[in-house]
Design a binder for these strands. Structure first.
Lengths: 214, 214
DNA sequence: CCAAATAAGGTACGGTACGTACTGTACCTT
DNA sequence: AAGGTACAGTACGTACCGTACCTTATTTGG
């Protein structure tokens, strides 16, 4: 091919390819992840396609498949980039109720941003294949939120608010589990009143009372 | 394409199509539903295809689409036919704990037979479209299981076991919700011990104690 | 009993999305 | 300047979808 006046930016003549520099590495990767995020918000998980993501990122499927082998993994990567990770440090307001409410409010936003449809879609695909190593919830004791809850409860025990002794893990993760369940199975947004009810009518009575009823 | 000796049964040569009679109506419908059920168990929801169902039922896609417009609806129909519906009458053993455990054990089996992957798949598809009228959980007070739980609790109140007065709906459906959550988010089978723990360490303390903690 | 209506069988099509392969080209490294 | 790497762009084969069309068996009802 005869070279025809390429400038340093790689443009030959006035082709439709008016963009000069070719994106690479992290630049392109972030463009794809952002495109995936936007597609996710506009069309939802089930209607999101690799081709549409590539087109929106102004690239092609190759660049996508080179990085992520499936729609599910692409979406997970996109979520990790575009949803805020709640701080896992346990709040310490000096009051058990406030600590729990604070923690719950923190975790609600990211889950709501992701949305139930995406979560269902991901769980479905990770089932279909066999990749559920990262997606399925960890065994309750390893759950990061369970650890945060334990930390909160330890502080409360130090203050004499609760008797932690033989509290089963299931009770410790109860509020978090209920929030997750609610977000996964209802389409109406989770109200603050619901969160308060979970804490005041369910969680606190269980941990504050001497839990023993013969 | 020369015609080659078709007999009245439409068989060319010695093809495998030796059966003469053609299935119709309920016979064919049940064959399709059974085929869908078997495909579901063998390949799972995400890998189930209409073509495979038709092939297994020894018919073609037309017969399937004539009856169900989508994979999701076909699967739901198949589940209705092939999973036992738990009796919704509230058990009345004269003991609250036994009543609750009985009810929970009843609802676990059907959900386990369906499997988390299918439920996630269905929720995903019903999200993608907008058919979630039947799949999403009813508003808690209309939930059939909530009604059964209320019935059980009314009996217990009559016996003086609990004070039902201001018990929120969320507490009433708590055991059922926790069972559902567990079945949806874990891959390990739900043990009897877990069910007992939900009842003994969570539900009973909440409903039996005067729930008020100043 | 026969003809019309009904419903199944069978094939083929257009469409979408997948995932891969192959070309060329820009950019980076040395 | 030479080479490798990674992006751009295109094209392909596959799978499944949902539909259309025609043929054939069975039911119906006149």
């Amino acid at each position: 091919m005869a070279e025809q006046s390429k400038d340093r930016k790689g443009n030959t003549e006035g082709e439709q390819h008016t963009t000069k520099s070719r994106r690479r590495g992290d630049v392109l990767e972030n463009a794809i992840l952002s495109a995936a995020w936007e597609e996710l918000r506009e069309t939802g998980y089930s209607r999101l396609t690799m081709e549409a993501v590539a087109a929106r990122a102004k690239t092609n499927k190759n660049a996508v498949y080179r990085r992520w082998p499936s729609k599910a993994k692409l979406v997970v990567a996109s979520l990790m980039k575009h949803t805020p990770k709640p701080s896992l440090e346990a709040p310490d307001t000096g009051n058990l109720r406030e600590d729990v409410l604070t923690l719950l409010e923190r975790i609600i936003k990211p889950i709501q941003m992701i949305g139930a449809e995406t979560i269902h879609g991901l769980m479905g695909e990770f089932h279909g294949d066999e990749i559920h190593s990262k997606m399925t919830l960890p065994p309750r004791s390893e759950d990061i939120l369970a650890i945060a809850m334990k930390s909160i409860l330890l502080n409360a025990e130090r203050r004499g608010e609760v008797k932690l002794e033989e509290l089963p893990d299931r009770v410790i993760t109860l509020p978090v589990d209920l929030i997750r369940f609610e977000l996964l199975t209802t389409h109406t947004p989770l109200t603050d009143e619901a969160v308060v009810e979970i804490v005041d009518a369910i969680f606190l009575p269980l941990v504050q009372k001497p839990n023993r009823q013969g």
